[in-house]
Each structure stands twice: as C-alpha cells, then as structure tokens.
Design a protein around this nucleic acid. Sequence first.
DNA 1: CAAATGATAGGC
DNA 2: CCTATCATTTGT
Length: 185
Amino acid sequence: MKLPRDFYARPCLDVARALVGKHLVHRAKGARRVRSGRIVEVEAYVHEEDQACHARFGRTPRASLLFGPPGHAYVFLIYGMYDCFNVVCEPEHSPAAVLVRAVEPDPGVDGRTDGPGKLCRALGITRALNGADLTGAQIWLEDRGEPAPRLAATPRIGVDYAGEWALKPWRFVDADSAFLSRRLK
DNA sequence: CAAATGATAGGC
DNA sequence: CCTATCATTTGT
C-alpha cells in the first residue's frame, strides 16, 4: 500500500526509522514498468539548528521545499554529478527530511543501489522530480507488508563539517542487509 | 588518495 | 560578481 500523507507528517526521526523496510517506487514518465527497491539505509536531517541540514541557512531557494508540506520529494545535486533523494517530513514550516542512502534492488533494476547517488541513477531519479508529491503516480513509497527489519543507528555519513551535530546517531539501517553504502562496525 | 563537475550560499 | 564548498563516486 502506498504510504499516505499522514505517514510523513510525524517527527523526522520516527519517519526515518519507519522508512527502513519500505519500498521506494519510481514510474518514469511514459514508462510501463516501475523501478523500485527496498529501503535499507536512511538519514534524518532535522530543523534549522541541525548544522548538517540544508535548512541551517534558513529558507533559501534550495531549502524552501523543506519548509513546505510533508510527503514531497526533495532531490538535489551533489558534487556536480549525483542526485540525492529525500522525503520531506513533519508539518509545514517545520523543515526536516529523510535522505534515502541505499535500497535493495527489486527485480528488473540494473546497476548498484548501495549509495545515495547510485540508487538515484539506478532508479532514474533526477532533479526533475524535485517537489513531486509522494502520494502521486510518479514516485512514491509503499508498504508491502513485510516484517520490520532489525534496525541499527550510527552517525551520519559525510557531515563532519557539522560539529557536534555530526555525532548524532541519525543514520538508520537494516542491520541484516548486504546492500548498505558502508559496512556496520 | 585525488579527480570529476556544477549549483549553491555567503562574502565582498 | 567570486569562489569555497559540497548529505558522492570512481579510479589510481
């Protein structure tokens, strides 16, 4: 079942934990098949005070989506060549998002999906989807009724510049997955 | 370990 | 305007 808007209108850390084990599904415009994967790794980015969050500079043009209503895609370009897919959560005016860092590819998906840039490439997710409604027909998340995974939490990857915020254990993974962007310690 | 590659934000 | 930086990936 497709996750409803209510799912996203909760505290970011709750949404992040709940997303592990759900499936990210993309139907490219005009495509007859979807490309999807089971989420095994996410990170939470929580409010302006979180010095790793794009909302730390306030409501800039790029970050404005984070301040908008929940249940929308936030896709940005990183290092000039990779897209990163995020889910906007929490009520309007409360900037927060969950970055999807790795999925286990569902059948029919080509290419690796064990990293935020790689999964976007393999699923065909680009900045054209920035702002897309996740309750729509283009891109969404769904619960396939599978058992909840065993979760582990670690600090977030690649945010060393964020000082004490870099130490928060806000990366959540399926501890039993072989498709993580990095091994668990 | 360093290159690739371009949008973004803050500073001047 | 100018440029350092960046929620990464890949190859040496």
